[in-house]
């Protein structure tokens, strides 16, 4: 077990509803609601975009572009309930497109990230101990690129749009569920075989 105590696996049902509420409030004229919406969803978009292997600068560009697209095409989001899916799907599509266009893609290594990292540990104490995180990172890196991408996406997006995900992963819609199962199984096996993982105390 991990030390995580929050029920939030990324965009849980709660964030879904909060996003819809802020979006509706913003549409009704509350400018501060847009601020809250951007702060709520920007970290989620970041992780989705990084799942496509873009370097940090390109990932930032994609996140900016996604928000601009939302504000410019606000009328295309008829139902506030759809705002989360609209932004996450737009961000993933743009990230996929950018990565395919051969923009700077990097294979991030924790070591190379060190310099850019803030001190480990979140304000709510839900982040993993750094050593545990690194162990997990190392094993995820052993998975196929497709598994890595899929797991990062579903770790941050509860119910991703399967049609777009299917195109981006190059697998049939019907294969996403089974692939997800296989990827998690593989990861579980790798972790089970690693004493550093089973002995950890967060």
């Amino acid at each position: 077990m991990t030390s995580a105590t929050s029920d939030d696996t990324g965009v849980g049902a709660a964030s879904w509803e909060v996003a819809a509420r802020e979006f509706a409030a913003w549409r009704a004229g509350d400018r501060a609601a847009l601020d809250r919406l951007v702060r709520l969803l920007t970290p989620v978009l970041w992780h989705l975009v990084r799942a496509y292997g873009l370097d940090r600068e390109s990932a930032e560009d994609v996140v900016q572009t996604t928000w601009l697209a939302l504000v410019r095409n606000v009328d295309s989001v008829r139902d506030p309930q759809a705002v989360l899916r609209w932004t996450t799907t737009t961000a993933r599509r743009e990230a996929w497109r950018t990565a395919r266009a051969g923009k700077r893609v990097d294979v991030a290594e924790p070591q190379t990230l060190d310099a850019a990292l803030p001190p480990v540990g979140g304000p709510d104490g839900t982040v993993l101990a750094e050593r545990t995180a690194r162990t997990l990172w190392r094993h995820i890196a052993e998975l196929s690129e497709r598994c890595q991408r899929l797991l990062r996406v579903i770790a941050f997006e509860d119910r991703p749009d399967y049609a777009s995900l299917s195109t981006e992963l190059g697998i049939a819609v019907g294969s996403i569920g089974p692939t997800r199962g296989r990827c998690l199984e593989k990861l579980r096996g790798l972790l089970a075989a690693d004493p550093e993982w089973s002995d950890r105390r967060d």
Partner: peptide
């Protein structure tokens, strides 16, 4: 679900947004 939460926290720890 627990495993995905760990993946979520791992990325938040090692590759957080600016």
């Amino acid at each position: 679900l627990t495993l995905l939460r760990a993946v979520h926290d791992m990325y938040d720890t090692l590759d957080p947004p600016p």
